[in-house]
């Protein structure tokens, strides 16, 4: 019974992954551009070049910022949906999170292109509220700013945050639902204030959910090459580097080595998450 799916995933998927990993140990001849099928670590050393290292650091930083912001926005929604929403409202919250989760990724990115454009709605709101100077000030900040929102890291970060947010809400909610109510009552009976109950009892128990959600937001940000291409500056992210090297540059070994970076990071992350028991919350 298992043979078929295992064959599919095992052969097609893992087989392809291994084929990719193998290629990262090959190298490319810098003059002829021909791939040399000999074992070498040269390609991995290339990752440590300042320009390539920058790409990795930039992507990991972005993934971290997006993940933290997602937790901040997701937690209140998940918390409210678990503790206060009942009956019809519960269904409402469920659909309100599921719809954006499953709706089209490209349409969501496209919507943000409309929103962040110079002639778009955000600029319009700032103008109507006579706050254009605030926006200009934000965009003048080095590194994260830019000519307009759609070519700045602020824009990239907003789109990432928007697209991955549901992936954070659902696991947190699943974890919160599993906090037994008698534990919370016990906390109150023992004289804890609501704030203490939240930070000492509820939040630690919801932690597996937060970790599970962060697996998604982190992994998805690490591998995405479309969002930074459409909304953002011309500086590359990991996914874009992989895409460029395998495509126009034809440097499959370096592309393979680049794609080992997210695999490695996610591997460490998953291992830590498993130890924290986060898999039960997915």
């Amino acid at each position: 019974m298992l043979a078929l799916p295992v064959l599919w995933l095992g052969v097609v998927y893992v087989g392809s992954l291994l084929a990719l990993l193998v290629q990262s140990f090959f190298s490319i001849d810098e003059f002829t551009g021909v791939i040399q099928y000999e074992f070498t670590l040269k390609t991995y050393l290339e990752l440590l070049r300042p320009s390539n290292l920058d790409i990795i650091i930039r992507t990991v930083t972005m993934a971290t910022v997006v993940t933290v912001a997602a937790v901040v926005i997701a937690f209140p929604i998940a918390y409210y949906a678990t503790r206060y929403a009942r009956g019809k409202w519960k269904a409402f919250f469920y659909i309100a999170v599921m719809m954006p989760l499953w709706s089209s990724y490209l349409v969501k990115v496209y919507a943000w292109k409309l929103i962040l454009a110079k002639e778009g709605i955000i600029n319009w709101i700032f103008i109507k509220m006579h706050l254009t100077s605030v926006l200009e000030f934000l965009l003048a900040v080095p590194v994260i700013g830019g000519n307009s929102l759609s070519v700045s890291y602020i824009g990239t970060c907003l789109v990432f945050l928007y697209v991955w947010l549901p992936f954070m809400i659902l696991p947190i909610q699943a974890a919160l639902e599993r906090v037994p109510s008698n534990v919370i009552e016990a906390s109150y009976d023992l004289g804890a204030t609501p704030r203490q109950t939240f930070f000492r009892v509820i939040f630690p128990l919801a932690m597996p959910g937060v970790i599970a959600g962060s697996i998604f937001t982190f992994s998805l940000t690490l591998g995405d090459y479309i969002i930074p291409q459409i909304v953002g500056s011309s500086r590359l992210f990991l996914g874009q580097a992989v895409y460029l090297h395998q495509g126009t540059a034809g440097n499959i070994p370096l592309a393979a080595a680049f794609s080992v970076v997210p695999i490695f990071i996610m591997g460490c992350y998953l291992w830590l998450a498993k130890r924290a028991g986060a898999f039960d919350a997915i």
Binding site: S16, Q23, S219, L220, G223, G239, A256, S259, P262
Partner: peptide, 19 residues
């Protein structure tokens, strides 16, 4: 194994299949 395709970035799946 079943979780892997969603835990790993899509681009990894894509480039792995292509190669």
């Amino acid at each position: 194994l079943v979780i892997l395709p969603i835990a790993l970035p899509g681009i990894v799946t894509g480039i792995a299949l292509r190669s």
